[in-house]
Design a binder for these strands. Structure first.
Length: 877
RNA sequence: GCGGGCGUGAUGGAAUGGUAGACAUAUCGGACUUAAAAUCCGAAGGCCUUGUGCCGUGUGGGUUCGAGUCCCACCGCCCGUACCA
């Protein structure tokens, strides 16, 4: 009997699949189509175990759908532009293009042995000029359709390296290479008008029935629809042109709790005032230091600068409020100005405490029955309102949910006790009636800035002409390709900044409009653009236009999209925007506006990070294989102890990536595939541990051995056959349910149980062969090579990959009797085995007669008996 | 800071509100073997007063005949936070 040897059978079956073009996707009307797509990888250099997990999940779906009679499209490509290629060139010479394509070659050669059922003929990388040229065409169409525009936006600026930094390159507010304190600087940038579609992108979430609720919720919160009041404070003795300060608030019901007005350091008024106020100029400059991330801004210490200006409260002209410049107010949100209500906003309260501002109360907790007598009102009056909050919790603002009922001490309309929601509506109505402002719906979603001041990206195909201004490039001149060298001399990537800017000749071009000499745009596109339409390109990857409508019509939508939860917001939202933009520009049918019918977000494979601090004070990350673990502590070979950061996302820059190639070489692809699917539920993060792969390999060897024995067995049919076949049908049912619901770990657990049943069964050879063939089929999406081998061994017809998926016989699934646990007061005391459809009253009688129940009741009579048919009996004593 | 999620034996995890720990890993015992590996069989949440006992799903409350599951609060960890991909 031959031994299970994956190194022989895996290449053999891969060759057969390739030869017979099993996974080639060809349009055909005689079968329903199915498009399954996993988020394509960045070519970081080597595949890691997270890739194996992600693509194996997609492959299980693809192979399952193939065997259920679908015409399957399952493509693969590379998201190939981005910073790591430039960083590699900066660190060790070479060229981003060479680095990227060499990585792609390596990763393809690592992926092919895994036996994925992919249509490799459709492969592309986003850095192929054939791809990004079409992206440039798409950009021009979007520009023409009014979906693209230019405006100023802030970037991280490294004042030493004189370059723009990505957020990732800003560490604790300092440039990663120079160590200089980063500044926020304004630059003219290209933008997609995604905010125009806020309402639609929000509303359409309701149609995405097969998306995880959490992703839809995250997107909804990100888009952030809010209804509020926009109004203006009139200023007192302000400079010309600043007689009003426009403010937007989502809590107009707290307007009577206003304590100060805050404006952004980038607000026009702040910029005007700083001209004649050196202290304010210094304060504003200080505020502009540090990174641009929302997190950095929110966590920064809240600081303000009293401009000395005052404004009048709209409802009490005698009530004056000071105007502060405050570092936590962003020009990008709302109007760049707020009013502070410290009593009911924690951030405002912190600010008010710091600058000794009053905290007027607007409403109180209903739990305070006697507000008049409570000492919280002992702080005096401002604008006719009590001032201090509860001294016991004087530094905690009272911030109830909008749906919570509170007692308004002075609202604008209606009942004194009402919910925030009702009060907000009433406040807006009242303000509108009194001419103080108007209700406005705003979205948090900002336009998508796509400009990047970097080399390794898709060039933005426009030209700057002295005479004509900004002019779109002509489509016949596409692709505008990246220059590989500087007119024969290697591009120097060791200098920070954008090589396109200092290239001797690439920028020079003629104006597409007037024909005079002009300069190319040197900004390249955000790599999110590349990944926002690749799924559509896969339907016709060699088309001379971004898409081919007939192919898009046939293959779109993506029926099942699979990828990491880390993409829940940006990538998926941008793709939804692009699908709409592609419809508007005639590149996708209208029904593709939501391009992903079903989404599955798989968990990440995490691994500890091992960190030490280098001589320059910067972190140094060590590979897992360089670290020895003893008693929960990690040591390098030279004995240095390393800091262990547990369970972090695998990231090349943190050196905590696990390479699956060794596992594949040692145990084979099927073991790796089986292993990454077993145990952990697909949606959950899994901490990688090296042990376990061997056990998976042992199991596959066992399956092969059992199948080989069955193939040679020769025993007559007997009474055991029925039990084995019942097990088989249950396995078919459970494994199918598992595969269809992304319960791959559950399917695998069921396959273990079925294998054990087959192994122990004394059934006849025919029944066993049928069971073993079914086992091979049920395993085939996960372990396709082993399954083909067993299928052939047992005389299966054709390839198991093409064999129709087995169907469970309903009649074989039902048992005649059922064992019911009997509880007394929720604790299990006994059990009874009864016919499955026994009458409830009969079950109750039997349950009460059991020893366990009698003992527990101790002669007392039960108060109540609950019988859940087929499930449980609970006796309430 | 804000938004979202997760938390169950030594370990990965299972469980439409209905017997908590399926299935597996590691461990221990047995068979086979000169021996080991492989293989096969079996044990196994904790506690003690060993009763058909009590306690057990991050912590504390609540709803329910019944809670790992639903609700509230808290703790810890993870993801995202618009220039990492």
């Amino acid at each position: 009997m031959s031994r299970y040897d994956p190194s022989v059978i895996e290449p053999k079956w891969q060759a057969v699949w390739e030869e017979s073009e099993t996974f080639r996707a060809v349009r055909s009307d005689d079968k329903p189509k199915y498009y399954v797509l996993e988020m394509f990888p960045y070519p970081s250099g080597r595949i890691h175990i997270g890739h194996v997990r992600n693509y194996t999940m997609g492959d299980v779906i693809a192979r399952y759908k193939l065997s259920t009679g679908h015409n399957v499209l399952h493509p693969m490509g590379f998201d190939a532009f981005g910073m790591p290629a430039e960083n590699a060139a900066m660190a060790s010479g070479g060229h981003p293009k060479d680095w990227t394509y060499s990585n792609i070659d390596t990763m393809v050669s690592q992926m092919k042995p895994l036996g994925f059922g992919l249509d490799w003929s459709r492969m592309f990388a986003t850095c192929d000029p054939e791809y990004y040229g079409q992206q440039q065409a798409l950009f021009l169409d979007m520009l023409e359709a009014g979906l693209v525009y230019r405006k100023n936006a802030v970037v991280n600026w490294d004042p030493v390296d004189m370059t723009v930094l990505a957020n990732e390159q800003v560490i604790d507010g300092k440039g990663w290479r120079s160590g200089a304190e980063v500044e926020r600087r304004e630059l003219t940038q290209w933008f997609f008008k995604i905010s125009d579609m806020s309402e639609e992108l929000l509303d359409a979430l309701d149609t995405l029935d097969d998306w995880p609720a959490k992703v839809k919720l995250m997107q909804a919160n990100w888009i952030g629809k809010s209804r509020g009041l926009q109004f203006a404070f009139s200023t007192i003795d302000a400079p010309d042109g600043f007689d009003r300060i426009e403010v937007y608030t989502t809590r107009p019901d707290t307007l009577m709790g206003a304590s100060f007005v805050g404006i952004s350091p980038d607000h026009p008024l702040a910029k005007h005032l700083e001209k004649n106020n050196a202290d304010l100029a210094a304060f504003n400059a200080e505020c502009r230091k540090g990174g641009t991330t929302e997190e950095a801004l929110e966590k920064a210490e809240k600081r303000g600068f009293d401009t000395g200006l005052r404004v009048r409260h709209p409802f009490d002209t005698a009530w004056e409020l000071p105007v502060y410049v405050a570092n936590f107010i962003l020009m990008d949100y709302g109007t760049g100005a707020i009013f502070g209500c410290p009593a009911h906003d924690q951030r405002d309260l912190d600010f008010a405490r710091k600058y000794d501002l009053p905290t007027p109360l607007v409403f109180t907790d209903l739990k305070l029955d006697d507000p008049e007598g409570f000492e919280i009102y002992t702080g005096g009056q401002v604008g006719g309102l009590p001032v201090t909050v509860n001294p016991d919790t004087g530094n905690v603002a009272f911030v109830p949910g909008k749906g919570e009922r509170v007692r308004y001490l002075r609202g604008f309309a209606g009942d004194e006790v009402q919910t925030g929601d009702v009060a907000i509506d009433a406040a807006i109505e009242f303000c509108e009636e009194n001419g103080v402002g108007h209700g406005v719906t705003k979205f948090r979603l900002r336009d998508w800035g796509l400009s990047r001041q970097r080399y390794w990206g898709c060039p933005i195909p426009v030209v700057h002409c002295d005479a004509c201004g900004v002019v779109p490039e002509k489509k016949e001149n596409l692709p505008i390709a990246l220059p590989y060298d500087e007119d024969g001399k290697a591009i120097d990537f060791s200098i920070p900044g954008n090589p396109l800017d200092r290239h001797p000749s690439w920028r020079n071009c003629v104006c597409p409009s007037c024909g005079q000499p002009a300069k190319r745009e040197t900004d390249t596109m955000d790599t999110f653009v590349d990944s926002s339409w690749y799924f559509a390109r896969f339907t016709a990857p060699r088309a001379e236009t971004p898409t081919d409508m007939a192919d898009a019509e046939y293959w779109m939508n993506v029926d099942q999209y699979i990828g990491g939860i880390e993409h829940a917001i940006l990538h998926l939202l941008y793709s939804r925007f692009f699908a709409r933009a592609m419809h508007i520009t005639g590149h996708l049918p209208e029904r593709c506006k939501e391009p992903f019918n079903a989404l599955f977000t798989q968990g990440m494979v995490t691994h500890a990070i091992y960190k030490t601090t280098g001589p320059d004070g910067r972190p140094v990350y060590h590979y897992p294989e360089d670290v020895e673990l003893r008693d929960g502590k990690g040591f390098l070979k030279d004995g240095t102890e390393v800091e262990i950061i547990p369970s972090a996302k695998m990231s090349k820059s943190k050196n905590n990536v696990v390479d699956p190639v060794a596992i594949i070489q040692q145990y084979g692809a099927d073991t790796a595939r089986w292993f990454v699917l077993s145990d952990s539920p697909p949606e959950r993060d899994v901490e990688w541990t090296a042990s376990g792969a061997e056990a998976a390999a042992r199991h596959l060897g066992r399956v092969y051995r059992i199948a080989a024995e069955v193939a040679e067995a020769n025993e007559a049919a007997n009474a055991e056959d029925d039990a084995l076949l019942r097990e088989m049908h249950k396995a078919i049912h459970d494994v199918t349910v598992g595969v269809e619901s992304f319960g791959f770990n559950a399917s695998i657990a069921r396959l273990y149980a079925f294998t054990n049943a087959l192994s122990k069964s004394k059934a006849g050879s025919d029944a066993k062969r049928q069971a073993a063939k079914t086992l091979a089929q049920l395993m085939s999406p996960m372990t396709p090579h082993l399954s083909e081998e067993i299928w052939a061994l047992l005389g299966g017809e054709g390839l198991v990959a093409n064999a129709p998926w087995p169907k469970a016989d309903e009649a074989m699934l039902v048992e005649d009797t059922v064992t019911l646990p009997i509880q007394v007061n929720g604790k299990r005391r006994d059990e009874i085995t009864v016919p499955k459809d026994m009458d409830t009253a009969e079950v109750e009688k039997l349950a009460l007669a059991t020893d366990g129940v009698k003992r527990a009741l101790d002669g007392a009579s039960p108060k109540k008996v609950i019988v859940v048919p087929g499930r449980i009996v609970n006796v309430v004593a």
